[in-house]
Design a protein around this nucleic acid. Structure first.
Lengths: 210, 210
DNA sequence: ACCGGAATCAACCTTTTGATCGATCGGTCG
DNA sequence: CGACCGATCGATCAAAAGGTTGATTCCGGT
C-alpha cells in the first residue's frame, strides 16, 4: 500500500473541523496532520510540515480570507494542493479561488463520499468541482451576456448603495439619461426588471461587492 | 446519575451533522437519538420519538426553513426545546426564530464547551444566547429608533430580494397599501427615502442577511 | 380601563423609475 | 474600410414607488 494522503483542515468553525475530521478519518488512505482556525495559521502550518492537500474554507471571521491564504500557499515551490470547501458559492468566490490556484471547489453540503473522492482527485492533481459549481461556471461561459461592462458595474455599485438615478449621474459626471440607459442594459443582462432585483442578482452572483 | 439528554440534529450538511455529533458525543450526559437532513424530516422525527433538545439549523437547501420547523415542533404539547445553531446571524433570523419558540440561539463558530453548555441550558428550559447575539439584541433594545419590528424586517427581506410591493404583498398575504405603510416606517427608522437605500442601510447594520 | 405601538387597509397626489424610441461619437477588429 | 460595441444624451409615456392623511383592530403594559 502507498503512503496515506496528508491533510490540513482550515476552517474557523470548530464544529465543521470536527465534522470533516469525522468524515475523512474513516477513510484508511487519508490522515489529518493539522487543523487551522484562521487563514494565517493555515499558511504557517502548510509551510512548516509536509502536507498533500489543504481543505480550505473561504470565509473566516476576521483577518485573511481563504482566497488570499490559497494564493500564499500555492505560491511556494512544492506546495500542497488546495481544495476549497465552502458553504455558499458565488461567481466572485469561485473565480477568485480558482485565480488563487485552488485545485478544487466543493460545497459543504456535499455527501461524505463525494468529499473523500474530491480529496483523492486533488491529491493526484486532478481538478475537483462540485456539480453545482461546474454547472454555474459552464453556464457563465455559454452566456457571456452576464458580463457587465466596467461602466455598468460602477453604476450598479452606486445603485446598490441606495443612490437615486440623478445622484448616480452626478457622482459619475454623466446625465440621468445615461444612467437609465446603463440600467436598461444591466437589467437585460441580469434578466431582471428593477434596480433592487438587479442588486440582488448581482450580489448573488458576486458581480459587485456588498 | 440522571437520564441523559436526548438530542435530534437537524442540518442539511452531512459534515456539520458529523461535527456536532463528534463534539457532543464526548459528553457523557448527551446522546444523539436522530439526525434530519431537512426541516420536514426534523418535524417528523421530533414527533415520532421522545427528544429533549433539537439542534436546528435555519438555512436548508430547499423546502421548509428552520424557523418554520421550529414553530411546528414547539406547537405540540410536550414538545422538545429547540436550540437554533446557525452560521450567520441577522435580526431577521434571530427574531423569527425566537418568535417561533426557540429556546436558544447559537452561532456555529461557538467552541464545543459553549455548545454543550447551551444544550444543557436548553434542556433545563433556560434561554441560551450566543454572546454576539445577546449583544446585538441588547443594543437593539437600547436604540429603539433602529429597531425594526418583525413584520418590517420580513417586508424588507423580500424587498432586498428584488420583489415589487405587489409581490411582497402577495407573499405575506397582505395588501399593497400595508406594504407601503411598512416601508414608510422602515424609511423613517433607517433615515433613508428609498427601497434600495433601505436595503443598503439594513445590510450594513446586519438587520437582514445578505 | 386606558394608552401606545404594531399591523392592517384606503384614497389621493407627486416623484422616480422603467420602457421605448432614436441619435452621436470614439474605439476595435476582422 | 465597414461593422460593431460601449458610452453618451434626449424625449416621451406608462408604471411603480414614495408621501400624506386618516382609520380600524389587536395586544401588552400602566
Amino acid at each position: 500500500m502507498t503512503a496515506p494522503i496528508r491533510l490540513l483542515l482550515a476552517d474557523d468553525h470548530p464544529v465543521v473541523r470536527a465534522g470533516l475530521r469525522a468524515v475523512l478519518e474513516t477513510e484508511p488512505d487519508l490522515v489529518i496532520v493539522a487543523e487551522a482556525a484562521t487563514a494565517e495559521e493555515a499558511v504557517r502550518l502548510a509551510a512548516e510540515q509536509p502536507v498533500d492537500v489543504v481543505l480550505m474554507d473561504l470565509q473566516f471571521g476576521a483577518g485573511m480570507n481563504g482566497s488570499q491564504a490559497t494564493a500564499e500557499i500555492t505560491a511556494r515551490p512544492g506546495a500542497p494542493r488546495v481544495l476549497v470547501v465552502t458553504t455558499y458559492d458565488s461567481d466572485a468566490d469561485t473565480l477568485s479561488a480558482i485565480e488563487a490556484g485552488a485545485t478544487g471547489y466543493l460545497l459543504k453540503d456535499a455527501p461524505p463520499a463525494e468529499l473523500a473522492a474530491a480529496v483523492r482527485d486533488a491529491a493526484a492533481g486532478r481538478t475537483a468541482l462540485a456539480p453545482a459549481v461546474a454547472d454555474r461556471l459552464l453556464h457563465r461561459m455559454r452566456t457571456p451576456a452576464t458580463a457587465l461592462s466596467l461602466r455598468e458595474v460602477q453604476v450598479l455599485e452606486l445603485v446598490a448603495r441606495g443612490l437615486a438615478n440623478l445622484d448616480v449621474a452626478r457622482e459619475l459626471h454623466i446625465s440621468q439619461a445615461t444612467v437609465k440607459s446603463h440600467l436598461v442594459h444591466i437589467y437585460a443582462k441580469l434578466g431582471v426588471d428593477s434596480r433592487t432585483a438587479a442588486v440582488a442578482a448581482a450580489t448573488g452572483r458576486g458581480l459587485i461587492r456588498r
